[in-house]
Computed example of a mutant assay.
Amino acid sequence: MKRILGGMVVAVALSGSSFAADLGARTYAKAPAMMAPAANWSGWYAGVNAGWVGGANEVSTSGAVSPANTADLPNAAAMAAGATSSSRGSNSFIGGGQFGYNYQFSPLFVAGFEADIQGISRSRRSSSSSVFPGGPGVPPGTGFATNIANTSDPAYLGTFRARLGVTVNPNILLYATGGLAYGETKSDTAIAQSGINATNPNQPPFTITPASGAFSGMRVGYAVGAGGEWMFAPNWSAKLEYLYYDLGSATYSTGSLVSSSFGPTAFPGFGIGAVDTSTKVRFDDHIVRVGVNYHFN
C-alpha cells in the first residue's frame, strides 16, 4: 500500500512539472501609444487676410466722327483714331477680414461657406499715348498727339462663397471656392489731344478742347478660386488663396474733342473738327492673398 501511494505522488509531481514547462515564460504586452488628436475642421471661424490685386481691369476708349463735324473728314477720322486705345490697370495692395463655417462630413471631405470684405489701398491707374498723322495731303509730321488717362477706384470688394475641400492629411485642407462678388466701383477718364503742324515750326500746336467723363455705381458679379489651409495649432490655421472676381463692365460717355483750327495754315479745309468719345471699363481682377483664421470649435 505504501509503495502504491508513493508511486502516485511521484507521478503527480512529474506531471505537474511537465505542465509548468509547457506553459513557458509569462509575457507582458505594452499599452498602446496615445495618438495626437486629428484636426477637427467643423465649426465657425473668423480671421484676417492681406495680399496683391491686379492683372486685369481692362480699359478701352473709342472715338467716332461726330455728326456735328464740319471739317474735312480725313482729319476728323485721324482725331478719332488717336482717341481709340486700350490699357490695363496697375497693381495694388488688398486686405480685409473674413468669417465662415465648415462642416467635416467625413475624414476626407469638408464643405462650408465664407464671406469677406476687402479694402484696396489705392486707385488703379492706366494711361496711353499715341501720335496719328493727319488726313490725305497733309505734310509729313503733321497730325494729332493724344494722351488718355484712366483712374479706376473700387471703394470696397466683398464676396460670399461656397467652399468644398479635401484633407490631404488631417491638418491640411485643399479647397475650391466660388460664389457672389459685389463692390462699389468708380472710373474716370480724361482725353487730351493736340494738333501738330510741321509746315510751320514757329506756330505752336493748335489746341483741341479736352474730353472727360466718369462712372460710379454698385456692381454685382462672381468670384472663383482655390486655396490651401493648414491647421498649425489647436484652433488656429493659416491659408494661401487665389481668387478671380468679375463685376462686369460699364460704358460711359467721355465727351467730345473739338477743334476750330482747321484752315489754310493748319490742315486742308475749313470748319470744326469734332469727335465723340466713350470709355468701356471692365471691373475684374486677380487676387493672391494670405490669411489667418481662429476656429471656435
Rank of each mutant, 00 (worst) to 15 (best):
I196M: 05
R88L: 07
A176Y: 07
A250F: 03
V53S: 02
G47E: 03
A190N: 10
T159E: 09
W52V: 08
G248H: 06
P210Q: 14
S129D: 12
S212K: 14
G179S: 12
S249I: 05
V275M: 11
V48W: 00
S121G: 10
P154I: 11
S128D: 06
G269W: 01
G47N: 09
W230N: 04
T199R: 10
A13K: 05
K280E: 14
D72T: 08
Y45R: 08
P133S: 12
F113Q: 09
G248L: 04
A71Q: 03
W236H: 15
H286G: 08
S121F: 11
F296V: 00
V48S: 06
S87N: 13
L108K: 11
V110T: 12
A155P: 00
Y28T: 15
D22F: 15
T209I: 13
S259A: 05
G217D: 06
V224M: 14
Y245H: 04
L73K: 13
S129G: 10
G221R: 02
I272N: 03
D276L: 06
M8W: 14
S260Q: 14
S128G: 06
Q118E: 07
A36E: 13
G195T: 03
V258G: 10
G225L: 11
G97I: 02
I117W: 04
A190S: 10
G119N: 12
A211P: 05
G119P: 12
T189H: 06
V138Y: 02
F99H: 05
Y101C: 01
G178F: 07
S85M: 15
L180K: 03
A38R: 04
S260W: 01
T279L: 12
G248R: 01
R124S: 03
A211R: 07
A181Q: 10
L5N: 09
T209K: 07
H286Q: 13
G55D: 13
S85D: 15
S62G: 08
Q203P: 01
P201F: 11
N150C: 04
V290S: 15
G95T: 08
V288S: 13
K186G: 04
G183E: 05
S127W: 07
P205S: 15
E58Y: 09
G269Q: 05
G55Y: 01
V9N: 13
G291M: 10
A83D: 12
D153N: 06
F109I: 01
A192R: 01
L108T: 11
F270I: 15
N297D: 03
V9A: 14
M8D: 12
Y252H: 12
N202Y: 13
M34R: 14
A238W: 01
A36M: 00
G112I: 03
H286D: 03
A68F: 11
S259F: 00
G227V: 11
A39K: 02
T207K: 14
